[in-house]
Design a protein around this nucleic acid. Sequence first.
RNA 1: GGAGAGAUGGCUGAGUGGCCGAUAGCGCCGGCUUGCUAAGCCGGUGUACUCCUCACGGGGUACCGAGGGUUCGAAUCCCUCUCUCUCCGCCA
Length: 426
Amino acid sequence: MLDIKFIRAHPDIVKAGAKKKRIACDIDKILVVDKEWRELQVEVDGLRQEQKSASKLIGAAAAADRPRLAEEQKQKKELLKVREVAAELKQKELHELLLRVPNVPAEAVPEGRDDSENVEVKRFGTPKKFDFEPRDHIALGEAQNWIDVIAGARIAGSRNYFLKGDMSLYEGAVMRYALDLMVKKGFVPLSVPTLVRSEIMVGTGYFPGGEEQAYRTDSRDDMCLVGTAEVPVTALHQDEILNLADLPKKYVALSSCYRREAGTYGKDTRGLYRVHQFQKVEQVIVDVADAERSIEHHHAIVANAEEVLQSLELPYRVVNVCGGDLGQPQIQKFDIETWMPSRQNYGETHSASRFHEFQARRLNMRYRDASGEVRVCHTLNNTVAASVRMLIALIENHQRRDGTVYIPAPLRPYMGGRDSMGRALA
RNA sequence: GGAGAGAUGGCUGAGUGGCCGAUAGCGCCGGCUUGCUAAGCCGGUGUACUCCUCACGGGGUACCGAGGGUUCGAAUCCCUCUCUCUCCGCCA
């Protein structure tokens, strides 16, 4: 959420930002509602003041006079009540409008309509040329009895799956490797709730707007399954005023992630590229409101993810996501796309977002700066490793002619020291 | 799931209808004092919104878990909800 004061002072910047993101947003209406609300609030405050001072006089008055004075005061309550209700409704209207104002994208965000206009900023490694016809992860997984999408669909519907045998272990290996790497870098590991209140989804910027993408329980509980550990981790310090000395907060969390993938029928239907549930290790940083530092953090969390991919010998590229492909909350986003032979293309495996104070303001997450002033924090996050997409990249890129799969060195300790898995196929 | 107790400022903890945005202690900040790793004394110390002011600063309103209600007036009384604790039951 943007600061209403910022919108008042710089409506043109906010409008230009929304335009760059291709998000419709009526800023002029917000300014009108804001003005109306403030006028009502001033009136209500004045009426309350009168009412309070009158009440004090009644308290001080002789007992005999009180009933008469109270009766007089009762008459005056009506106007106050009417104006209070009006001010409250107006404030609510303003708040709901503000929740939908997109964050202003950074200068460095390229212009563009959709992901086809994202700008590649880095490429690492070279897609391997196979001297045999490589299998895609499904063919390989089914042949090795590692993946069962038929059973997944039977048990849980389409876009669900079972990982079996070594693939189940391999998923754990990748996750644990990613987690351990981040802990070595000083990130504090967290185990988090994945079923959260709706207000947390609002606080992190997923609602309003993203309701269709989240699984929700029925009205008995009205809870939401998170699509990423970013949600509970970022919200950990909701409503707190943090100590400057404790910042930055760096967290890493492994969690299950749940996504409805509404509106994706017919897209990525084969295989495990787009699924409803997966495992992910996520990195989150909460720090002071300093744009330069946030940019440094942004580059650092991208570098952390690159380190994972490089050490696992996977070719990838980094793209600077264009305005039209940015979500409402981000000020800038870098996606990392890893080479996937079955797609003959790079596929998104990581997403590094910088939010400025957008999330922290919604979550009311603040800190006291060196001068004692209370300020809203900045937040960032990035994937470290997301399970099925990483597994796709790993087994497709590292497959051999005979159907066995090479295990990169960092994962071997987590796989009983083996450098290969799978049996030779005919 | 049943019964009971509770939720107050950074922390501890008073406060059962007006003198309470809130006693006190701790912590923190500033100053004074004493030559001795520390103590004492004095003062200050919440957040948000808003109005006035170029500004320094000042005024107003709201907030005692959340939301409603009663009342001229609510931290205090009533209702609902959330959370915490204790006991019982059930259970991974």
